[in-house]
């Protein structure tokens, strides 16, 4: 009988197993040992692993440098930020230092570091508590970037990230923490840099990034009701990016839509579309499409945010246009649009 746990519990279990397996692993982050345990992802770890599970001062940049220094001498730190927006204070250490150390010192030093950052949407998180800036990190050689969308991948990618000898940015979407999935109890690894096909289809390839994979799966279900067979690929890793899996899929379906949690302009969807255009242009039946955020800072009011975030319906509408089909009515959303599920009542 497979076991079902939440995405947050999967992160916690992966961290627990990494701490138990290797005395060089340590976990640090604001609020890590507090009663809420970073959305439940660090609960109980302090009690089990003591000094290697630490709170920290509100010093994101220096704590990243501390982690880099510790990593160079053989520790394997996991640094956790409750929002990606807070981690922006550490861009200097991540981009100038962690990403470059192995290369600029000719392989003499490596930085086995995992930096967890939480992205999100809705519940009035607004312009400084929810940004999906994965394209920034994916732009930097020397970093790896993963964005698990399922509980299974949340655990497997975190263990793989901790065991990787390079700095890995691990982006988790706030709306995924409560999602459930089958997760084996024993430690396992999901290889960094491999996408996964979640649903087979013939008419179009939908590439989902992080939470938008969930919306893409919903869209595929609706499309199936209209006789459209959509293939859904969960990208999982942005750097390295598994272009081959996407290209092989588009070569069969002839159509591509990328659904990203981040902004469209300069976003990672543009990279995926570019690779397809460069390498599979002859197979494209129609121009590829990108679904993502508009060129607008995130508004806070639910009255504004409802027009800001793309949902499954936007994917369905775009796909119908790509197939020269008329618009379809989406089933009404169950509950408010600014929460992941009716059980979510804030405050953060």
């Amino acid at each position: 009988m497979s076991r079902v746990i939440t995405y947050a519990e999967a992160i916690c279990e992966a961290t627990d197993q990494c701490l138990a397996a290797d005395a060089n692993v340590y976990l640090m982050g604001l609020g890590v040992p507090d009663p809420k345990g970073v959305f439940g992802t660090t609960l109980g770890l302090k009690e089990r692993h003591g000094a290697r599970v630490m709170d920290m001062p509100t010093s994101e940049n220096a704590m990243t440098g501390v982690a880099i220094g510790a990593a160079i001498v053989g520790m394997r730190p996991i640094l956790t930020h409750q929002r990606l927006d807070f981690a922006l204070l550490s861009i200097e250490q991540l981009v100038n230092q962690a990403a470059k150390f192995h290369y600029m010192f000719g392989g003499e030093a490596s930085v086995p570091l995992v930096v967890r950052m939480v992205i999100g949407r809705g519940w009035g998180q607004g312009p400084q508590h929810s940004q999906s800036l994965q394209a920034w990190f994916a732009h930097v050689p020397g970093l790896k970037v993963v964005m698990p969308a399922t509980a299974y991948d949340a655990k497997g990618l975190l263990i793989a990230a901790v065991e990787d000898d390079n700095p890995v940015i691990y982006l988790e979407h706030r709306w995924l923490h409560g999602t459930k999935g089958e997760v084996p109890e024993e430690p396992y690894r999901v290889p960094i840099g491999e996408a996964r096909r979640l649903r087979e289809g013939e008419d179009i390839t939908l590439v989902g990034i992080s939470y938008m994979t969930i919306e893409a799966m919903r869209a595929a279900e609706v499309l199936a009701g209209h006789g459209i067979s959509a293939e859904v690929i969960d990208l999982r890793s942005l750097r390295p990016f598994d272009a081959e899996t996407v290209i092989a899929s588009v070569r069969r379906t002839g159509r591509l839509l990328v659904a990203d949690t981040g902004g469209v302009t300069g976003g990672f969807g543009g990279e995926i579309v570019s690779q397809i255009v460069e390498r599979a242009f002859d197979r494209l039946i129609c121009p590829p499409r990108r679904i993502g955020l508009p060129d607008i800072p995130t508004p806070t009011s639910p009255a504004l945010a409802r027009h800001y975030y793309p949902r499954a319906g936007d994917i369905v509408t775009a796909v119908m246009e790509m197939l020269d089909r008329g618009p379809v009515a989406m089933p009404p959303a169950d509950g408010p649009l600014d929460v992941p599920d009716p059980g979510f009542t804030g405050p953060f």
């Binding site: 220096a62 440098g65 501390v66 880099i68 220094g69 510790a70 001498v73 520790m75 200097e92 230092q97």
Partner: peptide, 17 residues
């Protein structure tokens, strides 16, 4: 200033070990 934190991290590693 960028490497000051790294020295502190080396010292943290020494303490943990």
């Amino acid at each position: 200033g960028g490497t000051i934190a790294m020295a502190v991290g080396v010292a943290l590693a020494a303490k943990l070990r």
